[in-house]
């Protein structure tokens, strides 16, 4: 369970990205966060695993106050939370399997990770994760040889190999074409349902957000303006989130 209570995030340059956010996400939910660029979506997501520290308020994940974590305990906490990025953030010059195995280094000693000493168990976990997203046969190919959609699946497999209870996805399909986007979103949905992993995803594509997420959170200038089921989103709520009416094309995330 993720529990925000009056969370404020102020950056050193004075920008207030979150202005008192309160919300609760239960284990196993699939939540999409929508809103304009700069509305605070990214900050909200990165606050959950302390990639950004919050300025005030309380943020609890599975009962643990996140801002109290430091050093080793923070790293142990992060192991339980996977993260997927818009730009995939793969290590391009190395193989797919090594990318997925990279998610295992957090569980290894420094010496083991320096020597890249992965156990057989680690390798099996990595290969099973690749199988989950349907690209097992690409395991020993260099990551930069894959298409964008395949790269995002590797990134998803890397996250699954981490065996997290929560996956945070920062614009996971923003740089993919519509067909590939749908495939990747299906992967997210399957993993969400099969493994009961909470998925919190920032989405530019409103139509995809409404199609895949059961719950949608609309954020505007650091304040939550909508929080409810995807079916509850209509013209009016979108207008409130985005500040004006959206056209048919804009709903599909096309310019």
């Amino acid at each position: 369970m993720i529990q925000f209570t009056d969370v404020v995030k102020r950056y050193p340059n004075g920008v207030e990205a979150l202005k008192g956010v309160s919300l609760t996400i239960e284990q196993g939910e699939f939540v999409a966060i929508i809103g304009l660029s700069g509305a605070g979506k990214s900050t909200l997501l990165r606050a959950i695993n302390q990639m950004h520290t919050i300025t005030s308020g309380s943020l609890k994940v599975n009962g643990v106050e996140v801002s109290s974590l430091k050093g080793k305990s923070l790293r142990r906490f992060r192991r339980g939370i996977g993260m997927v990025f818009q730009s995939f953030n793969l290590i391009k010059r190395t193989t797919v399997i090594k990318n997925v195995l990279a998610a295992r280094v957090a569980d290894m000693s420094v010496l083991q990770s320096l020597l890249s000493f992965y156990t057989k168990k680690d390798k099996i976990i990595a290969l099973e994760a690749l199988d989950q997203v349907g690209i097992l046969e690409k395991a020993y190919i260099r990551a930069d040889q894959l298409s964008g959609g395949q790269q995002q699946r590797v990134a998803l497999a890397r996250t699954v190999a981490q065996q997290p209870s929560i996956i945070l996805a920062d614009e996971p399909v923003a740089s993919l074409d519509p067909v590939t986007s749908a495939q990747v979103m299906n992967d997210f949905l399957r993993i969400n349902e099969a493994l009961n992993i909470t998925v919190v995803a920032n989405m530019h594509h409103v139509d995809l957000a409404l199609k895949y997420a059961r719950r949608v959170i609309g954020i505007k200038e650091g304040i939550i303006v909508y929080d409810g089921p995807a079916e509850g989103i209509n013209r009016e709520t979108l207008k409130e989130i985005y500040g004006r009416d959206l056209t048919e094309d804009e709903l599909k995330g096309e310019k």
Partner: peptide, 15 residues
């Protein structure tokens, strides 16, 4: 980017 990804998985900065 990859550095942020591995860091978010709970690895130390050196790892």
């Amino acid at each position: 980017g990859p550095f942020e990804a591995i860091l978010s998985s709970g690895a130390s900065r050196i790892q």
